[in-house]
Amino acid sequence: MSDPMVRFENVTKSYGALTVLDQLNLDIERNEKVSIIGPSGSGKTTVLRMLMTLERINDGVIWVDGEPLTHMDRNGTMVKASERHLRRVRGKIGMVFQHFNLFPHMTALQNCIEAPVSVLGLSRAEAEARAAELLDMVGLGDKKGHFPIQMSGGQKQRVAIARALAMRPKVMLFDEVTSALDPELVGEVLNVIRQLGAEHDLTMLMVTHQMGFAKEFSDRVCFFYGGKIAEQGPPDKLFNDPDNDRTRQFLSAVLEAG
C-alpha cells in the first residue's frame, strides 16, 4: 500500500499549439495537503481540471489510488479510459470551484443530497441526515432550506464544500476557492478547510493565492512556472529560503501586492 494517492506520470496537456503542461510528474501521498502556487497562466487550474477529468490529457497517465484514471487495462494493454471507467475512478475525487457552481434551483440541502441519492444510491433519509451533518460542520445548519441566491459568497462556498464531501471523496481539489469572495468572508471558508484537514482523512490539493494559508496549512508547496513545477518543498523552505530565482521573484511580487 505504498502507492501514492495521486500520481501524474509524464502528463502533457496542450491546447492547439500551446503546451500548458509539459511532462508533469507529481506524486501526492495519502492524506498529504499540497498547495499549488504560481503566476497566472502557469497551468495550476489545468492540473486540477485534468484530475477531475474536466480536461482530457494529451500524453502520460494519471493514477488515482493505485489505478490508472485516464487509462484502463484491456487484455494487458493500456487503452484510453471509457466513460464508465472514468465515472468509477473519479468517484474518489471531489472538487470545489472558484465560482461555487452551486445548483441555483436547489436549496443548500438539495444541493448536498442530489448526487448521493442519484449516484451513490443512498436513500433520501440517509442522504439528508448526512447532508445535514455536513452543513452543520461547515456552520450552515440553519441554512438548509436556503437557495444559493439567498446566501453570501462565503456561505455558498461552504455549501459547495459540504456538497463535495457528501460524495465521500478520498481526494479534494480546491481551485482558488476564496478568490471570488469579499475579503471579510475568506476566513470562514479557510477555517472550514482547516477543520477538514484536521478531522478527516483527506488528500487535499489546492490552488491558492493565499500564501499565508498555504504556508500554515500545507505539507508541501509546488511552485508552477510555465507548465512545469519550478520548485517544490515544505512550506518553510519554499517561502523562506527558495532555491529558484523565479520562486523568489514570484513571492516578492505577491508580497508587494499584499
Binding site: L54, R90, G94, F97, N101, V119
Partner: peptide, 14 residues
C-alpha cells in the same frame, strides 16, 4: 453556465 456541467461531472452525475 458551463460551471453547472463541471459541477455535474465533479459530482459524477450521469
Amino acid at each position: 453556465d458551463g460551471g453547472q456541467w463541471e459541477a455535474c461531472t465533479a459530482l459524477n452525475l450521469s
